[in-house]
Design a protein around this nucleic acid. Structure first.
Lengths: 147, 147
DNA sequence: TATTGTTATACTCTATAACTATA
DNA sequence: TATAGTTATAGAGTATAACAATA
């Protein structure tokens, strides 16, 4: 079997293509794909702490510091010290962050449709449900301190 | 929609899990997952040049230098100057490289089956055929000088 | 002039360890 | 003692530019 037919190779290359296209667009917003994910998560769960976002998105907390630093620096989010536990921050999206999210979501749809344009609706549905099934099983099986 | 339900997130996380597990095993062989791919490709196409491997696996040629340097250093492959075109090398797998490949392939199967164990045979087949379909369409659409 | 391989450089993500301030 | 956030550091992949040797 060729390495190009392995699941790992195919997953990696399709993912790379999708991320590369999305990243190219996101340059206009001065953020990367993982940073867009962080931004979207903060909008959905306002006042989440950095650790909470880290655990939800499976991003290391040291990487999260860099993402949050950057998003705050370009005024897409704010850190507000949590008065009930002064070790942590509550993260919130700014007005400017909301408008960036709207643009980003629109483009994410475009990018996904473009990369997967060769698939019909059934195949797209299969792909997503299969990936979610696998990812759920990975999460349930997780017991080490990766994050 | 949550970012955790996007194709990009799911592809990235499932790929990360598969690569992390495989990489953990490959530490015994002192190579990474991309290096295993390079090794396997050289076995299948003996005397391929670095550029040829780069183009087949969509790995940048400057990254390829580092991979080939490493694989040669630990005696899994050899560089032999091509007498017909002295700019390039012919790459071949050593005896030791062949035995590493056997172990690696065995583990790759185990890893894939483990990560995808939640899927039935039909679903595994769907996943692979869908990923190949998408990857083929990406390759055909490629026209820039990424590699 | 073009191509193969190489080097230098820079950026992003990942991961570990150790630190601080707070609990 | 434990947790949230931070800093320092290192490793891996990716990408661009520029160079030498060769075609």
């Amino acid at each position: 079997m060729q390495i190009q037919d392995s699941y790992g190779f195919l997953l990696a290359k399709v993912e790379e293509e999708m991320e590369a296209l999305f990243t190219e667009y996101l340059r206009k917003l001065h953020i990367t794909a993982p940073q867009f994910g962080v931004l979207q998560h903060i909008e959905q769960y306002p006042n989440a702490s950095q650790i909470q976002v880290s655990e939800a998105l499976f991003i290391d907390r040291t990487t999260m510091v860099a993402h949050v630093d950057h998003l705050e620096k370009i005024d897409l989010i704010k850190r507000v010290r949590n008065p009930n536990d002064r070790r942590s921050f509550g993260l919130t999206v700014t007005e400017y962050g909301v408008s960036a999210l709207k643009k980003g979501r629109k483009q994410l749809n475009k990018t996904e449709n473009s990369v997967l344009s060769v698939l019909d609706q059934d195949e797209k549905g299969h792909l997503k449900s299969i990936l979610k099934k696998v990812w759920n099983s990975i999460q349930e099986g997780e017991h080490d301190g990766k994050n």
